[in-house]
Design a protein around this nucleic acid. Sequence first.
DNA 1: GCTCGAAATGAAAGCGCTTGCACGCAGGGT
DNA 2: ACCCTGCGTGCAAGCGCTTTCATTTCGAGC
Lengths: 345, 345
Amino acid sequence: MPRSNPNPRLEDVARAAGVSLATASRALSEPGMVRADTRGRVEQAAAMLGYVPHGAARALATSRTRTIGAVFPPVDNPIFAGATHALAQELAAAGYTMLLASYDYDLDDELAAVRALVGRGADGMVVVGLDHRPETLAVLERAGVPWEITWSLDESGRHHCIGFSHRGASIRVAQHLLDLGHREIAVIAGDTKRNDRARERLAGVKDALAARGVKLPPKRVIEVDFSVANGRAGFAKLLERAPGFTAVIGGNDPLAIGALFECRDRGIDVPGQMSIAGFDDIELAGELAPGLTTVRVPSAEIGREAGRRLLARLAGKAVPRIKEMPAPLVVRGTTGPPPKKGRLK
Amino acid sequence: MPRSNPNPRLEDVARAAGVSLATASRALSEPGMVRADTRGRVEQAAAMLGYVPHGAARALATSRTRTIGAVFPPVDNPIFAGATHALAQELAAAGYTMLLASYDYDLDDELAAVRALVGRGADGMVVVGLDHRPETLAVLERAGVPWEITWSLDESGRHHCIGFSHRGASIRVAQHLLDLGHREIAVIAGDTKRNDRARERLAGVKDALAARGVKLPPKRVIEVDFSVANGRAGFAKLLERAPGFTAVIGGNDPLAIGALFECRDRGIDVPGQMSIAGFDDIELAGELAPGLTTVRVPSAEIGREAGRRLLARLAGKAVPRIKEMPAPLVVRGTTGPPPKKGRLK
DNA sequence: GCTCGAAATGAAAGCGCTTGCACGCAGGGT
DNA sequence: ACCCTGCGTGCAAGCGCTTTCATTTCGAGC
């Protein structure tokens, strides 16, 4: 069938309603400026023709796209997936759409993504963490695109951000283990080079231990990419390299769960012989038996709130620069006092 | 600091290069039409000014946005997260950007999302599964936006699609259990009302059992939303409602894992007393002990390939309407022969 | 019924880019 | 020497909408 009316334009609506282009435009986007009956006619005409405003044209005229860019590390990390989902929903509710780009922790890719999204006219941008190429924020700055940093808190106070102190949360985890009596602690950290969250989490552990005069020898720290498999492998390696620890902290839950599984396979009792703590509180953490002691990261809330803040700022409202989210320690079954006597092995 | 040059326009580039607007445009987007030295001057000028093409203007002039819409069920399901990540990467590599909307299995929301993305000028659209409001595809049709159905295969041959037969894969799972000797089988299915994948998976089990003369009483089937917690609860309910089964099939891996955990908590030996199979092969499935028997769903490949196909079609290339992906059964430790004598409980 | 100010409407100028068409110029055939 | 071809370039007309400014209409007050 030949498409008889290839997408009606506003002009068609105006003609059908017997008003001018300008009036039709106002009737649809600024209802208050038009008399009720006129508006009615326009709306009716629009409905009848199945009129859909042309986004690009509107964007060109207003230099607003009603689109928000989001640049995330691999969305297949459940923690980010939840956040993007919540963000998308929040934006959709306000008539905005999310432009999503994801990068594999490569900051040059992130920069490229930000450039692309700015070129697409994103009205605002959500980025993750504090580690970026210097140009990344400069591009946003120059283009006049407001951005929101998520997950981490920017101490300098220069940027709008929403998140929590990874160091602080990590300190709580370490203190919990210290309070239980652990003195020999190991860490399976994420990649601290490209990722301020992993770096801060590791630093938190170091701080907490140092504050109580407990050492964290380099051999007791291993860095891997986030995954269950790497958690297993990392734990095995720690055991081989520097045995004798009674507790291990995972840089995130999948890593901790990997360690847990490895213990199970090796017949190491958790928490009898080995305590394990994670970070993020993914769904699984609470379903395991024993449940994983971890830090609850409100990822969906962060996504939702980041969207809200950005929209508020675009609407000209003032928004506190820093929004700290709670990240409480959730104590479950994988942590307990260290074995009474002797050490593992 | 005052923004001295608020975003250079193509005109500025042209002036700097000493050519006309038209030539500058061609130099940047159709290199072949311009003499090498001219092109060089333009490129240099563009680089010097930090010129970024204005997406909306280009879109208006070409009626192409280099943007692909993706409308997914909750991206926090790891299986979809992997697919969107792969899709985004594939598109980015070709200079396209992904507009992502997600909906909570509510088809009206899906329709609204598709409308929004079409309004934003998406050049193509990726949708999931076969269940849609009739208007959804009509909107795409009318707007002339090509779409790709993922996950499911459209038997009617009317739509471009990439996925696999959920029924077929499900049959393989059921046959595997039948071959092991199971005759009393239960199913924790997803919501079959709003979701053709869940429906087909359940139908596959029914078909396979029926083909061998095995009954699947309604009491042995329970429908829940996808999650580990619901898998647990569902399993518990089945046990209460219709005990005596020796195997349970989860509508996806989280459900199966929930059942597995519930068994563990109740001291039911897997696979000694109870066999469990899932669907999707998420990372965790292989890391559990015993490993979960499941169907490997190539979700990242589906995302990547959907992107490729759409881009190829936009480039005018012919693409086979249907692309079937492999979805092999992966047998691990959670399935084994039914207990020799007597039944559970 | 008339005047005046406010409210509603219309005409038209862009927003930044692409692209059909026209034009100028170099080179090859006759 | 001439015309024709064809490449490389420039001119200018949009793409579909918003928005300023001018104009018309309306309603209230006298």
